[in-house]
Design a protein around this nucleic acid. Sequence first.
DNA 1: GCGTTTCGCTACGGGTCGTAGCGTAACCGG
DNA 2: CCGGTTACGCTACGACCCGTAGCGAAACGC
Lengths: 209, 209
Amino acid sequence: MVTDMPSRPPASRPSGRPRSAAADTAILEATRAALVDLGWSRLTLGDVATRAGVAKTTLYRRWAGKNELVVDAVAVLFDELELPDRGSLAADVEGVVRQFAAILDRPETKTALMAVVAEATRDAPLRERIRTSIVERQKRLVVEGRARAAARGELPDEPDAGAAGRAADLIFDVVAGAVVHRTLVSGQPADAEWARAFTRLLLDGLAGV
Amino acid sequence: MVTDMPSRPPASRPSGRPRSAAADTAILEATRAALVDLGWSRLTLGDVATRAGVAKTTLYRRWAGKNELVVDAVAVLFDELELPDRGSLAADVEGVVRQFAAILDRPETKTALMAVVAEATRDAPLRERIRTSIVERQKRLVVEGRARAAARGELPDEPDAGAAGRAADLIFDVVAGAVVHRTLVSGQPADAEWARAFTRLLLDGLAGV
DNA sequence: GCGTTTCGCTACGGGTCGTAGCGTAACCGG
DNA sequence: CCGGTTACGCTACGACCCGTAGCGAAACGC
């Protein structure tokens, strides 16, 4: 979404014809459909506009380019992420893994996520956009699961806030990275059996197996 | 490399002007340079040909397209991977992490690796090419490190070959995935401190920290 | 020399990009 | 009801890159 809000909260009626909210959702939906049919590289903005029943110029008025559009189109899929309390740290870890795996199983995300990450290596604003709209939503689950485990007494309390943050970052990179690598690089499904084995490894370590 | 070898080993002299080996290396080198300067998306084959001092048609005679070319150009960087025996499992794990991190620190690999992986989700031959020329070279280190640890008695022997293979796959996805995610998604360096923390997590597990 | 294959070069049709320009539509205030 | 303002649909455009065809010249083995 393009955030060019004038910094005036009271009665922010910009006067004039308002942007069609229906067009926004239609465009994002068309983008996901195009990703499924064509993949990242063959996807063109002209095609998306046609699918959405919208003029190409309208698309360019709202998004700077392909990268930003696809990030927004895929980001909504991460809204469904949530972590019900399953009673134990092991069960919660497995729950997180299953959630990540389910999203990465969709063809839209398979082809789009790595592509935008690749683009983000040379585009700081895009990197920030990905961070806030995708990465942080995932990370929330990890932080939440850790807090629960600490409350249950399964993990030692960490008084140092800085160290706790670094630990959460590390665990997040391990969990998300493993699922992504398994799914996209190794090209094999992160199914229930794999999730169980990964959880055991994460909790008990290499020596514990 | 295009492997259109005629299945005739004896005296395979195809008669005619041989392909310039110098052109191959010049093209791959020019590709890496272009990746550094332009990144994946702005890289064009015409530009690579110009940089290499080679006609564009020559490039198309040897590689099917951008994907295949970049995979070959980046693959050679993984040749330097090796795992000197550092005496303990922890030290060896840290060594592997440092090696992966060093390669991912280069701007060529940063922008190229995720891009080709994204393309590979819709291109099975490309996936196989990546597997044999990049992934397997990394995986070798993990298998080797595990064998050493077992010989030292740091890990229990695994008589079942199938289970051992699955375990190696899992560990590889965890190690490589964590480094990749840390570097490219979280956008932070996998430095010595991080490698140490990760190693401790991998060996002792969540509870051990 | 002869056949064969590669090379450099030029040229081309086809596709996508991102933008400009125009007339029309929607919403607001007076 | 009527200007002011902004969004929309449409068309057209130059610029760029793609991938290939066709040519003459160069580099091998025989």
